[in-house]
Amino acid sequence: MNRRNFLAAFSTAFLLAAIALTSSRARKFLRKLKRAVLPAPSKHKKAEELISKLQDFNINEEVALTFIENHIKLNQASTWFKIDDKILKIFLLSTDYIQNGADASRKLNWVTYYSPWLAPCYNPFILAQNALAN
């Protein structure tokens, strides 16, 4: 095989491998493989991850850990769950952040896991407004 052919074959193989690895099925397989081989992250680790993603807020580990534990229990999830924007929003809504004027510098306290199904009348925005009205 001359150099040109070798480079062409290598590039093609590389391209095919890249496509395979980025396909959703491949990603799903790799995710499963990772979960089968590696130990699941601890709840503390997840709490740290959550805090690091909300650096501008005053969150202590206990509150973050309470959220992680609730989330796992209520959603029958493992600690492999991804902490994305949706989870971060649920976390903020699960604390007294909104009720206490949305002051990020103030230490956040745990209220209850935010879920319209589990606690249908826990809407922090409306509760905050009701508190003002009273």
Partner: peptide, 15 residues
């Protein structure tokens, strides 16, 4: 629409 999940993660403008 007043959806609680529309809360913003930016602490300077959560609403």
């Amino acid at each position: 629409v007043n959806r609680p999940m529309n809360i913003q993660l930016d602490p300077n403008s959560p609403f």
